[in-house]
């Protein structure tokens, strides 16, 4: 589950955003500790931060899979609702063994995302509109199929995953899942030709096609992996919530984009920072937790979420403009402009 120091340096070194995030997290932690007292860094609070951050990091990777190929997945929550309903049904109603349920959730996540991919490729519609429509289709279908019922998951293995500890009482085992997903993503993008093709398609689809990349297949693979990660996020979410229903996933969209964008994944595609996604999720949930610790009423919780995303987008854009002024000429080209068509 670990990353070797050399590789870690390679990942961090190539991504200034990751270093910035480490600073940001340090700042957040010292800030909230000085305002809210030592409770913030207590093992109980750190545990709940990393528990949520692990899921949000996987959601960020699910989003990044499609952002990398210059698409997006608005239906992360819709797939999450379908997968959660299926997991609850299999474990609670059908009494299926855990491994069967986990495998089936993964398969259904992949199939649900592949259906969107096929729709995008056959209709030629933008991924935005396809995944938006599927968000309402999947979300509605999940609630319809389950009749809105609650599933009380009792599997001891899942409980141990979501509510147990790893090495220290401050670390939730879900962190291992998130880091493992991160390592696999990193291997995909930096040690595998499929990942390279994904980056190529995202950077310039026409050039990738001209170079002999089977764009349709690569895009479908990106959809499938995004769906698989949604399935993983579902299992992570269920492992600590335990009492689940088809309403799960309704609030996944924002964290998925915050983790990806704040983590330094370029919205125009063709760029990824796995370490950035993990750190961005940690920062995001530290901020959420810190605001609760310093007694900010829960009604105000959405405002900082929006502001963090806005700040991330603005900083990212400013950095890109400064770093690569020549590439800006590409952005003014019609169609490739910063316009989700």
């Amino acid at each position: 589950m670990g990353v070797s120091p050399a590789r870690l340096r390679e990942v961090l070194g190539s991504q200034t955003s990751a270093l910035g995030l480490v600073l940001l997290i340090a700042l957040t932690w010292t800030g909230f500790t000085s305002i809210g007292g030592s409770g913030f860094l207590g093992s109980f609070n750190l545990y709940s931060i990393v528990q949520l951050a692990a899921r949000d990091a996987v959601l960020g990777m699910a989003q990044a899979m499609l952002i990398v190929v210059a698409r997006m997945n608005l239906a992360v929550g819709g797939i999450g609702a379908v997968c959660t309903s299926l997991l609850g049904y299999l474990l609670v109603v059908a009494g299926a063994p855990l491994w069967v349920a986990v495998v089936l959730v993964g398969v259904v996540g992949v199939l649900a995302a592949l259906l969107m991919g096929f729709t995008e490729l056959t209709t030629g519609l933008s991924s935005f509109i396809v995944t938006l429509a599927f968000l309402s289709v999947y979300g509605g279908a999940a609630v319809l199929a389950t009749g809105g019922r609650q599933f009380q998951i009792t599997s001891p293995e899942l409980q141990a995953l979501g509510n147990g500890t790893l090495f220290s009482p401050a670390i939730c085992p879900l962190v291992a899942v998130a880091v493992a997903c991160g390592v696999l993503c990193w291997l995909l993008y930096f040690r595998n030709s499929l990942g390279w093709k994904m980056l190529a398609v995202g950077a310039n689809e026409r050039a990738a096609r001209a170079s002999g990349v089977h764009v349709g297949g690569v895009v479908l693979a990106a959809y499938a992996l995004s769906g698989l990660l949604c399935g993983v996020a579902t299992i992570m979410n269920a492992s600590y919530e335990l009492n689940v229903n088809a309403g799960f996933g309704a609030d996944w969209l924002l964290p998925s984009f915050i983790a990806a964008v704040l983590g330094g994944v370029a919205l125009t595609g063709g760029d990824i920072s796995v370490a950035g996604i993990l750190l961005a999720a940690l920062f995001y949930d530290s901020l959420q937790s810190g605001l609760t610790i310093i007694n900010v009423p829960s009604y105000w919780i959405e405002l900082p979420q929006g502001l963090v995303l806005l700040a991330a987008v603005l900083i990212d854009q400013a950095r890109r403009r400064r770093a690569r002024p020549l590439e800006r000429s590409r952005d003014t080209e019609p169609g490739t402009a910063a316009v989700p068509s």
Partner: peptide, 15 residues
Amino acid sequence: MDLSGFIVTLATGTA
């Protein structure tokens, strides 16, 4: 900022 409306309005809409 020459940004896409999608991500900006996702952020401001939430705010």
